[in-house]
Amino acid sequence: MAMLLAITAALFVAVLLVLIRLFAGPTLYDRVLAVNTFGTLTVLLLSALGFVTERPDFLDIAMLYALINFVSTIAILKFFRYRALGRATASGEDV
């Protein structure tokens, strides 16, 4: 248990360091990278907290967070490249 508490503390420190980069920027891509790393750390933190509080359900939340984190990173990058998440065509299909 002490090990898990120690790893939770290490994760908090890492999250703080990543947050510094998230606020400092300077470019959009630094921020997206920081958000992506923040998401990975959040997944680990959720799993660690699930162990500390002895509630294995947290792992399901962690898994969902990993899925959403990946999709959101790609969505943000796509939006800032094309300024749209999809484009309606004459035939009604999305591109």
Binding site: Y29, V43, S47, A62, M63, A66, F70, T73
Partner: peptide, 20 residues
């Protein structure tokens, strides 16, 4: 479940890095 999370991170993290 932990192994699934690990596999998922293993597959998606290079894709996200490449996208950035």
């Amino acid at each position: 479940k932990l192994a699934l999370i690990g596999l998922f991170l293993f597959v998606t993290s290079p894709t996200a890095t490449h996208a950035v």
